[in-house]
Design a protein around this nucleic acid. Structure first.
Lengths: 120, 120
DNA sequence: ACACTACATATCGAAGCTCGATAGGTTGAA
DNA sequence: TTCAACCTATCGAGCTTCGATATGTAGTGT
């Protein structure tokens, strides 16, 4: 979230959870617009249950991502009264995602290198 | 830290930083006893500056790992008055490390699978 | 008509972790 | 003797995540 606009992409060991949440959300949104609840379901499905978002974690993150302009939220006012907010990736979000992927790649490389194992 | 003694190895997305710190420390100690300051230096060297421990983070973690029996700390009372505490991996620590490595491997796969990129 | 589950968003206090600063001390080299 | 590097330790501030709670709609079964 607080990454510098420019500069080398990094995934700080100190913010792994946060950065991971961010990367996963951006990646899911790269495939097309989703609303929050949908994102949680899809993450769980795609990871076969390994990853999941707590709702109490998910919504605040989405709000923050929207606030900093990485995603855009639009309330769907369909015929139905069910309120849903559709999120989509902004240009900035797309850029950040690409950078995050690079950063995670290098994180894993470093991690397994220190651990003394081949990167799988 | 709060992993169940048995059961499937997992790296929870919610505790990535903590688990990462733990895994790195255990891995460094697997190579032989180190004291805290040494661990910080070695991590920085081995990762070529990518990873580092803040002292304010490192010592509390070491204390906790010792407390739960994953590592053992021995004060070195050499001739010198410089106080150093040598940490070494316990049997439990060695087991946990092996499990953590497996867990990180699977995390790694899941992550890139959701991200939609080939695992590097 | 009623109950129940799944859908959907949101917030809040508690708990936990990390940061950066601060503290206190030793050793060796310039 | 001054300085930098070595060495351990703690604490408050700040941030994140958790789990509970709140609120309401849509659909399904009975």
């Amino acid at each position: 979230m607080n990454q510098p606009a420019n500069g080398p992409p990094t995934v700080e060991i100190q913010n792994l959870s946060r950065d991971c949440h961010e990367a996963l959300l951006l990646a899911l949104l790269a495939a097309g617009p989703h609303h929050g609840y949908q994102l949680a379901l899809e993450l769980e499905q795609k990871s076969e249950g390994a990853f999941r978002f707590n709702h109490g974690t998910l919504y605040p993150i989405l709000h923050k991502l929207e606030q900093v302009g990485l995603i855009r939220g639009d309330w769907l006012d369909e015929q139905t009264k069910r309120k849903r907010k559709s999120y989509s990736l902004t240009e900035a979000g797309r850029t950040r995602l690409a950078r995050q992927i690079e950063a995670w790649r290098s994180f894993f490389f470093n991690f397994f290198s220190v651990i003394g194992e081949e990167t799988p």
